[in-house]
């Protein structure tokens, strides 16, 4: 099958590659770019393990063609690490509050939580539960994921206040 030229920004870096237009973004990220944080759990947009951030929106990359992401600004969980290599606030809070077990849903969860807290920096528990309902976890029962995200919101808001 003929390939097309694709160009996008992934985790702040410009990437260019040749890919079949039918290639799903998740496969492009995982196979071509070797960015294996986002995972494949269902291939039908239900589980959210493949969640990435595209142009400021949470997107399930298992049901997006690479052609659709051409020219986009993509962030994966790998891009949420601090510049000095330490864990970002949300990542740290997931660790602190035991918001993960097998770790397979975690990259999608954290990437979605990152966007959720941009959309709503002071969510209630209910808003977190609703906002995270597109990401499935089989291990944690969500209780500690919700706790992690609420704690991350507090931390981020405190950081923001301190900076102001």
């Amino acid at each position: 099958m003929s390939k097309m030229h694709v160009k996008m920004t992934v985790n702040g870096k410009e990437v260019e590659a040749l890919a079949e237009p039918r290639t799903l973004l998740i496969h492009f990220l995982r196979e071509d770019l070797k960015i294996t944080g986002p995972h494949i759990g269902c291939e039908t947009s239900h589980c959210g393990a493949c969640t990435v951030d595209i142009d400021g929106k949470s997107v399930k990359s298992c049901t997006v063609f690479v052609a659709q992401a051409n020219g986009a600004d993509v962030t994966t969980v790998e891009g949420l690490v601090n510049e000095d290599g330490t864990l970002g606030v949300i990542q740290e809070m997931f660790r602190e509050h035991h918001g993960l077990q097998c770790g397979f849903c975690t990259p999608g969860m954290i990437t979605r939580a990152h966007r959720l807290l941009q959309e709503n920096p002071t969510p209630s528990e209910e808003e977190v539960r609703f906002g995270m309902a597109g990401n499935l976890c089989r291990c944690t029962g969500y209780q500690n994921i919700v706790k992690s995200i609420l704690a991350a919101a507090d931390h981020l808001n405190a950081q923001k206040e301190a900076a102001e």
Partner: peptide, 9 residues
């Protein structure tokens, strides 16, 4: 968790 939270599983 240090690995898993940054997609390094």
């Amino acid at each position: 968790d240090v690995r898993f939270t940054q997609g390094r599983g």
